[in-house]
């Protein structure tokens, strides 16, 4: 399955991955993210529920402490 993450093509094994599964493979240094799936904002409580399909476009922006 091909998913575009922040405009970069990524290949994933399996067709049953949730947004959270993809985030978990990203090795980010935070547990807080802003996520858009095909330009639609996806709230944090939906990350484990929504499955990603072949060709989907994900934007994943990590949020880190500091301000």
């Amino acid at each position: 399955m091909v998913v575009y993450i922040n405009d970069q093509e990524k290949q994933f094994n399996g067709n049953d991955l949730t947004i959270q599964d993809i985030i978990d493979q990203g090795k980010y240094n935070t547990q807080y993210f802003v996520v858009y799936l095909n330009e639609k904002y996806i709230g944090r409580l939906q990350h484990r529920k929504i499955k990603v399909s072949d060709g989907d476009r994900l934007k994943i922006y990590p949020l880190v402490d500091g301000g």
């Binding site: 240094n29 935070t30 802003v34 858009y36 330009e39 904002y41 934007k59 922006y61 990590p62 880190v64 402490d65 500091g66």
Partner: peptide, 22 residues
């Protein structure tokens, strides 16, 4: 970084810590 009406300014990575203060 812009998506719709959200604009994220910064490097999205540098997290404040003892070794990396603000």
């Amino acid at each position: 970084n812009q998506m719709n009406t959200l604009y994220l300014c910064g490097d999205l990575i540098s997290k404040v810590s003892d070794d990396m203060p603000l």
